[in-house]
Nucleic acid binder design. Sequence first.
DNA 1: GTGATTTTGTTATATAGTATAACTTTATCG
DNA 2: CGATAAAGTTATACTATATAACAAAATCAC
Lengths: 147, 147
Amino acid sequence: MSGDRTIINYSVLDEAIGYHLRRAQLAVFQDFTETFSELGLRPADFSVLLIIAHNPGLKQSEVAEALGIQRANFVAIIDGLQARGLAERRKSEEDRRVQALHLTAQGEAFAKTMMTRWAEHEKRFVDKLGGEDARDQLVQLLARLMG
Amino acid sequence: MSGDRTIINYSVLDEAIGYHLRRAQLAVFQDFTETFSELGLRPADFSVLLIIAHNPGLKQSEVAEALGIQRANFVAIIDGLQARGLAERRKSEEDRRVQALHLTAQGEAFAKTMMTRWAEHEKRFVDKLGGEDARDQLVQLLARLMG
DNA sequence: GTGATTTTGTTATATAGTATAACTTTATCG
DNA sequence: CGATAAAGTTATACTATATAACAAAATCAC
């Protein structure tokens, strides 16, 4: 016998929000990982660079909290970006405890190519959804789940 | 100073599918974990019990594949359910390699209370979404992402 | 029918993501 | 001033996930 696939009853999994969220997130993150493998960027790295690029001078703890990353785990992320010459810590003069985050010139250039890559990645899923309106609708629904 | 929260520019993260998926999935799974902490069930355990309950006699590999779990990692999950007396492996007579999965009588009873708990959990998020229609819409959009 | 290949379940192991506690330095509060 | 809190860091543990290798049993090719 060949090609006879067992038919499976998924019960409430067919309508379960959490189950579909998990599967969909896995699919999107897998595409993300492939898209950014050349650039060596994980999802967290991408979001951190993006936030720093648009909010230069934020404290580590502020960026970490904004992204839902614990500050203990955030240290290694910044270490990595700094080691690659993309971001840098600058000791604040007013409060010498804080490290203000900035992109380097190289980091700014990198962010640009990163964004074109991201646009390709995002477009693939916007197309799967059926267009921008569907995407906006999805994002709005997802936002409600976090309220 | 108190209560002055730094305003942060999230840039494209505001519309990014992957970012919202991750945050939403985290929120839903956190509620799931709290809801099922008494019963000692992780999301994977729940889905496995559900599939076995509705498809008795499936092979381990079939259940694992249906849920996107690698069969190597699936072993420990079944070990756990079996140790708790909820599920059992039955050696197939036709093919002595395969382990057919079944719920025990105790497992059937457990599945019932599990489902009422799940319904409470799910309802919380259906309410956040604004009702069944919004939920169906969300699930349909999520399904498109996996195509 | 016999040898080669594939399938199933398993073990061991590595990696990544995440969570917690403790510590240092600096700032703030009473 | 002394106590307390905040920011960053280190160490560590735990979970989830991925890969490779293996034994037993079935299937395939000839």
